[in-house]
């Protein structure tokens, strides 16, 4: 039950993008087409899940054991950067199209604050290993969900007859805001 709550909270009520406003850069950058949005989402799910497990292990078995929790930021960034590198090599080998479509946003997962946020939240909320894993998967799925919803809306918006002043970034930001309001509707569901 506890695990389910953590999962639902990470996906819906405390969604990383629309509740914490983390990871806005790829959220706006790769949401113009559904195909890239799904690819990016899968990459983020992968990185988040791995980050959650690896950072948990390193934090509890190395940093805490040797009394070095103050090194958590440096360590987490190190872990994330390495994982993103691996994902990048993997994609480049097995899906060059996706690799090119994601472009700069793929290496930018490294500096995606939602991934670091995930690792820090995990420490802050004192999750155990399994909880952390579920939290990581949930956060990744939540990110993908929002990204694909946004991509779907933006694909439709591309054909809308908008006033010139709203075309491009402005309408995207307004859409994101309304989407965030909609997700506020979930907030009574669970208290974290």
């Amino acid at each position: 039950m506890e695990l389910l709550l953590i999962f639902v909270a990470a996906v819906l009520t405390n969604n990383f993008v629309l509740h914490y406003f983390l990871g806005i850069c790829p959220f706006l950058g790769v949401s113009s087409r559904m195909e890239t949005a799904v690819g990016m989402g899968l990459a983020v799910i992968f990185v988040m899940t791995l980050t959650a497990t690896v950072t948990w292990l390193i934090y509890h078995h190395i940093l805490v054991r040797f009394g070095l929790p103050f090194l958590e930021y440096v360590t987490f960034i190190l872990v994330i950067a390495s994982l993103v590198q691996i994902v990048e090599m993997f994609l480049r080998r097995f899906s060059p199209e996706l690799y090119r479509a994601l472009g700069i946003y793929l290496p930018l997962i490294t500096t995606n604050c939602s991934i670091l946020g995930l690792a820090l939240f995990m420490v802050l909320r004192e999750y155990d290993f399994i909880e952390g894993l579920v939290f990581g998967i949930g956060a990744g799925i939540g990110f993908t969900l929002v990204l694909t919803i946004m991509a779907g809306i933006r694909e439709e918006l591309a054909f809308a007859d908008l006033p010139r002043a709203f075309r491009g970034a402005p309408i995207t930001l307004i859409t994101a805001g309304i989407l965030a309001l909609a997700f506020m509707g979930f907030s009574g569901l669970i208290r974290v």
Binding site: L63, L68, T75, I86, M89, R93
Partner: peptide, 27 residues
């Protein structure tokens, strides 16, 4: 000393993993 050592070893471990993966997934 502990910080330097642990961080150094961690970095080394990740570097090794990346090197292996890079070799395996070379394009």
């Amino acid at each position: 000393l502990v910080s330097v050592l642990s961080m150094g070893l961690l970095a080394l471990a990740f570097a090794a993993i990346l090197a292996v993966v890079n070799r395996k997934l070379a394009v």
